[in-house]
Design a protein around this nucleic acid. Sequence first.
DNA 1: CGATATTGGATCAATAATGGATCAATAGTG
DNA 2: CACTATTGATCCATTATTGATCCAATATCG
Lengths: 226, 226
Amino acid sequence: MRKSDAVAAIIETIESNIEQGLWKPGFRLPTERELELRLGVARNTLRKSLKKLEEDGKIVRQIGRGSFVAEPATSNNVMTSLLNQVLGSSPSEVMEIRLVLEPWAAGLAATRATAADLMQMRDCIAHAAGAPDVPTFEKWDGELHQTIISSAKNGLLAGLYEAINTVRHQPEWMKLKQRTVTDDRRAAYHRQHGEIVDALAERDPEKAARLIRDHLIAVRISLLGE
Amino acid sequence: MRKSDAVAAIIETIESNIEQGLWKPGFRLPTERELELRLGVARNTLRKSLKKLEEDGKIVRQIGRGSFVAEPATSNNVMTSLLNQVLGSSPSEVMEIRLVLEPWAAGLAATRATAADLMQMRDCIAHAAGAPDVPTFEKWDGELHQTIISSAKNGLLAGLYEAINTVRHQPEWMKLKQRTVTDDRRAAYHRQHGEIVDALAERDPEKAARLIRDHLIAVRISLLGE
DNA sequence: CGATATTGGATCAATAATGGATCAATAGTG
DNA sequence: CACTATTGATCCATTATTGATCCAATATCG
């Protein structure tokens, strides 16, 4: 047989199958042992082609499962996987992110929040103070934080934070809160919330960021210990 | 016998029954022992499909009662609204968030990244350098940033960033990139990427954070102007 | 109420299919 | 001849699927 770079030829064949939509993303390729017959080439040669295709991100191979046309991360797929990610993430992970996002967002909110935003925050605080039980307190606490984030006037950020906030509906999270949110702590949180909103009203970004950071550290300690 | 991914096939069958309204929310599915006969597969295989459907929130299963088509969930709404939010967000909003998230994540990655992570980053850089066109460059650039974020070992953060990253597939974003990513800039980005990964390999959090921040500022300027 | 049947949950072992890896032999190219 | 691509073969690691058994929660019926 001639030396005509069979590897490159096979790559082009498979690539054209993909690009022409004959093999769509997620499609399972024929097994190597079938492809070698269909293409009239040794398995070793075929595998060199597949290796290159994998390195280029065109296909994905898994031992025992098969080879698949690579799937671009479509928004839909990502969102459903994000949902599972959120539902399965630990309080530690959640707090780690909140501790970065919220102080920064509060800094922005200090300059961007409207009077209506501030009023809504005070409303949340009042509702939280009058909450008869922990779940109700949690609801208004979440609403308050969401309002602060939204006041940063970055829609994408608000959406991301809302996604994070759904973790509060998780049974595990609710149990944790139920166990750790004592009356003493509720009082402390109430005071901290008030100070944060005051700082926002004073248009003091550093102060708002510092206060919400302190607040979140207190929350983290009460949830996870030191 | 051939491995034909029976699990996926069953999932699609059941999903289509639901989506076509044949099985409405609340409908009780046939018992597993009946379905395995009807679908001609082992119960174990069937159960893998049902488990996946349950994880995706499509059905609800209860011991002793049966499996039921799930009611549309609220957490699902949050994710679809996030999806719309992502698709509709401006490059300015995206960069504002990346500028906060990535330097911080890089700082964590400097201590948490594994050798395999670093190798994968270098791989992405090499692929980006050899990319024949802007879309391919964009793909590997996105992959690189995602790898850095994932190296922070916070699953929730990785999920959130992946959601942000899907914006790259938006036509508006791609056009913007096509117009602004010149060869000069590609060369500059390539150098910056290399320096960032070097800093991570040196386990220097401050340096990594500073470098990725500078890089993102350069990207923002090229995308949006001063 | 209590006994029994039904239903999903969980685990195990066995078999087969699949990609991963290596080696020696062969054929074409220069 | 020397070199390289290709072949053909063998074995390994992981996964899918099957078939079976037992457990846990619920429903049903006497």
